[in-house]
């Protein structure tokens, strides 16, 4: 794939800490919130989205290079910080894309401030206690195996991470899940105070689920669709939880057709 954009790296000071951001493209702003494993740099999804939008990819507080807010105890704390980031950057009418855990944070943001967010996209997002099935608990399995379960199958996982045990990516995940354990240990990956607020969110929302998601049950997607007044759901065939890794172009097209 040819590189259309070279992302620009910069930092923003927020609540006494630093937020690291990668950014590229022009057009309506589009903020991407990463999985609980953290963002692995500028990937094909971001590149594709940057063809039509100004794409902003922060490391959420406590993840990767951004400062860990010692006081944070809840994904809602991250949501507040991410809204402060939007305000501080003067961003309005943003298309907010949340991948996995980032989608949980994005849903929390949407319940707090609909003015800054023009469109919402939740991809395999937890946040609701699944009516059926269970969210895969990353704390009780090897973290490499957790990532492995994010892919539709072993072959695809091996394609991306052929030498996981010796890779820096593995230690990045180990580092990042400390923050996840600080804000999301219990209840694991959902908030009982989120669903009652969702009917008040009128932002047009696109829900995307990988057909073979083994991490976040699709019953959660259907629950989001039931509770959000302006939501539709798209199933990506043959993708697992990590739709952004496995089907970046399909996902980019879905987001672009929904985005500002």
């Amino acid at each position: 794939m040819t590189t259309h954009t070279a992302p620009k790296a910069h930092t923003v000071e927020l609540a006494g800490g630093e937020i690291h951001i990668l950014e590229a493209g022009s057009g309506p702003p589009l903020l991407v919130l990463h999985h609980s494993t953290g963002a692995l740099g500028w990937r094909p999804l971001h590149e594709k989205l940057a063809e039509t939008n100004r794409v902003i990819l922060p490391d959420m507080p406590g993840y990767s290079r951004s400062t860990l807010p010692e006081w944070a105890r809840d994904p809602r704390d991250l949501a507040i910080l991410m809204l402060q980031l939007l305000r501080k950057q003067g961003l309005r009418d943003v298309t907010l894309v949340g991948l996995g855990f980032g989608g949980f944070v994005a849903a929390e943001m949407a319940t707090m401030n609909s003015d800054l967010i023009g469109r919402l996209v939740l991809v395999g997002a937890p946040g609701i206690k699944p009516p059926e099935g269970e969210i895969l608990d990353q704390m009780l399995i090897d973290h490499g195996d957790y990532m492995r379960m994010g892919f539709r199958d072993e072959k695809t996982f091996q394609k991306f991470f052929p030498d996981l045990e010796n890779s820096d990516v593995r230690s990045l995940w180990e580092f990042n899940r400390v923050m996840t354990a600080r804000v999301c240990w219990k209840p694991y990956m959902f908030n009982r105070r989120l669903p009652p607020l969702l009917p008040g969110v009128e932002i047009p929302t696109l829900l995307v689920w990988g057909e073979k998601d083994r991490v976040v049950p699709m019953s959660i997607g259907r629950e989001y669709a039931r509770l959000l007044p302006n939501a539709k759901i798209e199933i990506v065939k043959s993708a697992g939880h990590l739709v952004d890794y496995e089907e970046p172009e399909k996902l980019a097209r879905l987001i672009q057709s929904h985005a500002r």
Binding site: L40, F160, F161, P162, S167, D168, S171, L172
Partner: peptide, 26 residues
């Protein structure tokens, strides 16, 4: 993953997105 080491590792890990590679021996 001591903190000083992790800082360098993290920076390295996020710098380059992993590309699909041929599988190597474990």
């Amino acid at each position: 993953y001591s903190k000083p080491r992790a800082a360098a590792t993290r920076a390295k890990a996020v710098k380059g997105a992993p590309k699909a590679k041929a599988p190597v021996a474990k």
